[in-house]
C-alpha cells in the first residue's frame, strides 16, 4: 500500500450512467471511477438513487444509458439488438433443418440419413440455446463484435470479480452459516454432475478443502465456531458479517457493500469499520461503500461521492465533501459534520 491509492489505475469505470423508471430519473448521468486498492464511498440522503446506481453496477437492472467498464471490459450498458440474439439461437438449427427438408424433398436423403440429420438439427438447437444461457466470455465478445450487447448478469459480475452484500440482509436463512459461505464459493468449485454421481476422490477432496476455506473466512469476519448455526438464528450484526464472508468466498477483487452499518449499534459499527480496513489492507481488496450515515464513511474512505436526486453533487476527500455547501444543503440538518 505505497502512496495514495487514488493514483492507482481504475478497476471500475462508470460512464454517465442513467436509469429512468417511467418518467422518474433515478440516476442521472453519473460518472464514477474506483481506483484499484482504494476504499471509496457513495453517500446521499434517502432516495438519492444510491441503491439504483448500485444495482446497475451489479447487473441487477439495466441502465437506460451509459456504461460500466470493469477491469477493462465493458460489462454493463443499455441492451442493444437483443432481439437478434434470439435469432442466433434458432437460426443455425432452422437452416440445417430446412436443408434436411429440402434434401429429403429432392430425394437425396431418406431413412436413416434423414433421421440423423434431424437429430443433428436438434443437437444444434440445444447447443445454441445452451450457449445463450451459459454465456461464456468469448460468446459475449463475439456478439458485441456484431453489434449485439446484453449486460452482464449478477452472476457474471461475480465471476468477473465483483462481490456484494445487500442493504436488507439476504442470507439463505434456512442454511447454516458455513453452508452460506459454501454457496458463496460456488464459482471457486468445479465439481460437475458426473463427479457428484460417482463421488470421485477429487470432488471429495475439493469439498473438504472448501469447508476448510469456509471456516477460515468465518474466522476472518469474526464468526469462528458459529459455522453450524442456522443463519436465521444469528444475531443481526453476525448476519451482516456472514454476508461479507459469503461475498468474500468468491474471491472478489472489488467488494460492494450496501449500507453495511444499517441497523448496527455504535460498537458493532466500529468493529465493522475495522473489518473493512483490514479487508483492504490485508487482502488487497478494493471496496465501494454505500452509506446513508456519513459518520461511518468519513474515517476510512479515500474518496467520497455524494448523490442527490440521482445526480452527483460533490466528490472529493472526506474533508472536502464535509465542507461542501451543496452537501450540507442536501442533508439539511442531517449529521453532516
Amino acid at each position: 500500500m505505497s502512496g495514495n491509492p487514488m493514483d492507482n489505475e481504475p478497476i471500475l469505470v462508470a460512464d454517465s450512467v442513467t436509469r429512468r423508471f417511467g418518467g422518474l430519473v433515478a440516476v442521472n448521468s453519473v460518472d464514477f471511477t474506483i481506483p484499484e486498492g482504494s476504499i471509496v464511498s457513495l453517500i446521499g440522503p434517502n432516495g438519492a438513487g444510491k441503491t439504483t446506481f448500485f444495482n446497475v453496477l451489479l447487473g441487477v437492472i439495466d441502465p437506460t444509458a451509459g456504461s460500466v467498464v470493469f477491469r477493462g471490459r465493458r460489462m454493463i450498458a443499455r441492451p442493444e439488438r437483443i432481439g437478434f440474439e434470439s435469432l442466433i439461437w434458432v437460426l443455425p438449427a432452422v437452416l440445417v433443418g430446412l436443408l434436411a427438408a429440402l434434401l429429403a424433398e429432392a430425394g437425396i436423403v431418406s431413412g436413416r440419413l434423414l433421421a440423423l440429420l434431424g437429430f443433428i438439427t436438434l443437437l444444434i438447437l440445444i447447443g445454441s440455446l445452451l450457449l445463450g444461457i451459459i454465456r461464456p466470455v468469448w460468446y459475449s465478445k463475439g456478439l458485441e463484435r456484431i453489434g449485439i450487447f446484453r449486460s452482464a448478469r449478477p452472476n457474471d459480475m461475480v465471476t468477473a470479480g465483483v462481490g456484494r452484500t445487500f442493504q436488507n440482509i439476504r442470507l439463505f436463512h434456512n442454511m447454516t452459516a458455513i453452508e452460506n459461505v459454501l454457496v458463496g464459493m460456488h464459482t471457486q468449485l468445479h465439481g460437475n454432475l458426473l463427479e457428484a454421481f460417482l463421488q470421485t476422490p477429487r470432488v471429495k477432496a475439493e469439498e473438504k478443502a472448501a469447508e476448510q476455506r469456509a471456516d477460515e473466512l468465518l474466522t476472518l469476519v469474526g464468526l469462528r465456531g458459529k459455522g453450524n448455526e442456522a443463519a436465521r438464528n444469528l444475531p443481526y450484526g453476525d448476519q451482516r458479517r456472514l454476508e461479507i464472508a459469503r461475498a468474500l468466498a468468491a474471491e472478489p477483487k472489488l467488494l460492494l457493500l450496501d449500507e453495511p452499518a444499517a441497523g448496527m449499534n455504535p460498537k458493532e459499527t466500529l468493529d465493522l469499520v475495522a473489518l473493512i480496513s483490514r479487508l483492504r489492507n490485508d487482502l488487497g481488496l478494493t471496496i465501494l461503500l454505500i452509506e446513508h450515515d456519513m459518520k461511518v464513511v468519513m474515517g476510512i474512505s479515500d474518496r467520497v461521492t455524494v448523490l442527490d436526486h440521482g445526480e452527483k453533487i460533490a466528490e472529493g476527500t472526506p474533508d472536502q465533501v464535509r465542507k461542501d455547501p451543496r452537501v450540507i444543503e442536501a442533508y439539511l440538518g442531517a449529521p453532516a459534520a
Partner: peptide
Amino acid sequence: GLLGQQLGERA
C-alpha cells in the same frame, strides 16, 4: 409480449 415494455427484462 406485444404491448409490454422490453427494457428491464433480464435474461
